[in-house]
């Protein structure tokens, strides 16, 4: 089984980000970067599918700066067979431009399955996976939380408002991974060493026209300090009143 998994290098969700001088990008100094966590589910799924099929290849593909080689090597350390970096100094804010570059790379790869995370945790687009599916003319299932594959067909579960949707599709297909699809493995130390020796190809991306640009970035307003109303049952009515009128959560 031949599987491509598209992964993105994003700032660690727990780092405090600063906005760069241009007001429209992040100041990357001192920021720790990780593989977008939803992509980890995609990588894990790809590895499990390959191993279950008794062979094949898992190719990790990333579009991003040179430093995204580290992200690709993390996928190789987990067990992917090779990596492809579509090297772009900046990842465009236009999801379609990114999708076109990835689709161009994947088009002739003969993949049975193309996996993505359901979204990147930095830009929240939820878009690149479905766009790539569209560009490749393949069926797409987003936010997959459970997957069965059998003889060229797949059955996926998606968690939807108030329930679960079960969808069937034919392979090849593009899927995006939801949290809980699996438990991503830790990259074993041997895997980390082996990753150095696995092929990692770096090439220019065939980016689509960039029609959307990030004009400005702003941090959310500082959260206001909490307030202590007092202690004991006497303050409960006031607390309830404020939760209704001020916090508007009741």
């Amino acid at each position: 089984m031949k599987i491509a998994v598209c992964i993105k290098r994003v700032p660690d969700t727990e780092t405090r980000v600063k906005i760069a001088a241009d007001g429209a990008s992040l100041d990357e100094s001192g920021v720790k970067f990780i593989m977008s966590p939803y992509d980890e589910y995609a990588v894990e799924e790809a590895l499990q599918r390959r191993d279950k099929a008794g062979g094949g290849e898992v190719v990790a593909v990333a579009l991003g700066p040179d430093a995204a080689q580290e992200t690709l090597r993390a996928a190789l350390a987990m067990g992917a067979d090779r990596g492809v970096l579509l090297k772009a100094e900046r990842i465009p804010a236009d999801a379609l431009a990114v999708a076109k570059a990835l689709a161009a790379e994947l088009k002739d790869g003969g993949y049975d399955l193309v996996l993505f995370g359901k979204m990147a945790v930095d830009d929240y687009h939820h878009a690149v996976g479905p766009m790539v599916a569209e560009l490749l003319g393949l069926p797409c299932v987003t936010a997959v939380s459970k997957l069965e594959l059998e003889g060229g067909k797949g059955v996926a579960e998606r968690e939807i408002e108030g329930g679960v949707e079960v969808v069937e599709f034919a392979l090849p297909a593009v899927l995006t991974a939801e949290k809980g699809l699996n438990t991503p493995r830790y990259p074993a130390l041997k895997g980390i060493m082996a990753a150095k020796k696995k092929p990692l190809e770096v090439k220019p991306p065939a980016l689509g026209e960039v029609r959307v640009v990030a004009a400005a970035l702003a941090l959310p307003p500082e959260r206001k300090a909490g307030r202590i109303l007092g202690e004991g049952p006497d303050v409960v009515p006031e607390l309830v009143r404020l939760l209704r009128t001020e916090a508007k959560v009741l």
Binding site: A77, Y186, A188, I192
Partner: peptide, 14 residues
């Protein structure tokens, strides 16, 4: 090195 950091990250997370 990148490998050294990756090793640290794995063990830290574990």
């Amino acid at each position: 090195s990148e490998e050294e950091r990756a090793v640290q990250a794995t063990v830290r997370q574990w």
